[in-house]
């Protein structure tokens, strides 16, 4: 079976787990949560296999490279990274409620990759600029950072939703009851920002080293570079305001959402600005 066929199926699997996580929150039955988790794990394993298969196939085509080189592959890897980080969070905290926000995000990324008409899913050879050992470390650190910020974004939404219900001591609706306490959410938001921030820094630094090898200047104010700096600065402000001013809770949740908007613009929006990183160029 070809990797793209598996990846198309994984798209449906993530859609299924989104529905299952939602079912758990509505019915209040943990039974659905268990199925949702195992569905997600199954999807993740299938996706991992597909990625390895794609890597092997590229070598058979004599253009061997890691599946991280075009827009299609980046969307797939984004979804993979989101699910990877989410499963780690679920396993460590034993919470499943973030699933109703995270799984749809992974589904959307997969669906865009699989079904959008302008996304080419063929395995393409690497053009000269991409033939570098820095490709793998640069792309992996950037997309893990994006994924950490995506999780932060989901936690931010959960925080705001949970706050809607803070008046009720004993919430009757399972939807709210299943959401973790705001103080835990706040701490997890912080941990994810730290993780994303370090990875984004790593992504920017590896990108600069690569640029220095490929183009000369390590920084040339290409829109992608500029927007990654903007994103980095937004999260730097968040870390400072939390550590120095003790900003917590609602403010951090809102900033987590704003930060993710900047991440999305860095990833997708800059394609509409002229620059070196544009996925739409070729």
């Amino acid at each position: 079976m070809s990797d793209t066929v598996i990846l198309n199926w994984v798209t449906y699997v993530y859609f299924g787990s989104s529905i299952l996580y939602l079912l758990r929150m509505i019915t209040g039955k943990e039974f659905w949560g268990g199925i949702a988790s195992w569905t997600t794990v199954a999807g993740f394993l299938a996706q991992t296999i597909a990625l390895i298969l794609r890597w092997i196939t590229s070598y058979k085509l004599d253009i061997g490279h890691a599946p991280l080189s075009n827009f299609y592959e980046s969307l797939i890897f984004f979804a993979w990274a989101i699910i990877l980080l989410y499963l780690i969070v679920e396993w460590r905290t034993k919470w499943r409620s973030a699933g109703i926000f995270v799984a749809p995000l992974a589904f959307l990324s997969m669906a865009y990759a699989s079904f959008a008409p302008n996304v080419n899913n063929r395995i393409q050879p690497l053009i000269p600029a991409l033939q570098s050992n820095w490709l793998i470390s640069h792309v992996i650190s950037c997309f893990l950072a994006y994924a950490a910020f995506a999780i932060t974004f989901c936690l931010g939404i959960m925080y705001l939703v949970k706050r809607l219900d803070t008046g009720n001591q004993e919430s009757t609706r399972p939807f709210f009851r299943f959401l973790p306490e705001t103080s835990y959410l706040d701490e997890l938001i912080y941990h994810n920002i730290v993780l994303g921030f370090i990875l984004l820094t790593l992504g920017i630094v590896t990108g600069s080293i690569w640029a220095h090898h490929a183009w000369g200047p390590y920084w040339s104010w290409d829109p992608k570079e500029t927007w990654s700096l903007i994103t980095w600065l937004i999260y730097a402000v968040m870390l400072h305001s939390r550590n120095m001013k003790g900003w917590q809770g609602k403010m951090m949740a809102i900033l987590a959402i704003v930060g993710f908007a900047a991440v999305l613009f860095t990833y997708l929006g800059v394609n509409y600005l002229p620059g070196l990183h544009s996925y739409l160029q070729s």
């Binding site: 104010w221 829109p223 500029t226 927007w227 700096l229 903007i230 600065l233 937004i234 730097a236 402000v237 400072h240 305001s241 120095m244 001013k245 800059v270 600005l273 002229p274």
Partner: peptide, 27 residues
């Protein structure tokens, strides 16, 4: 003051956004 830091970062962000939208140099 941290206020100044945040204000400066805010203006750097604003200027960077402008620079990524307004055509620069040769363009």
């Amino acid at each position: 003051s941290l206020k100044l830091t945040i204000a400066l970062l805010f203006f750097i962000v604003l200027l960077s956004i402008a620079g990524s939208i307004i055509p620069q140099q040769e363009a």
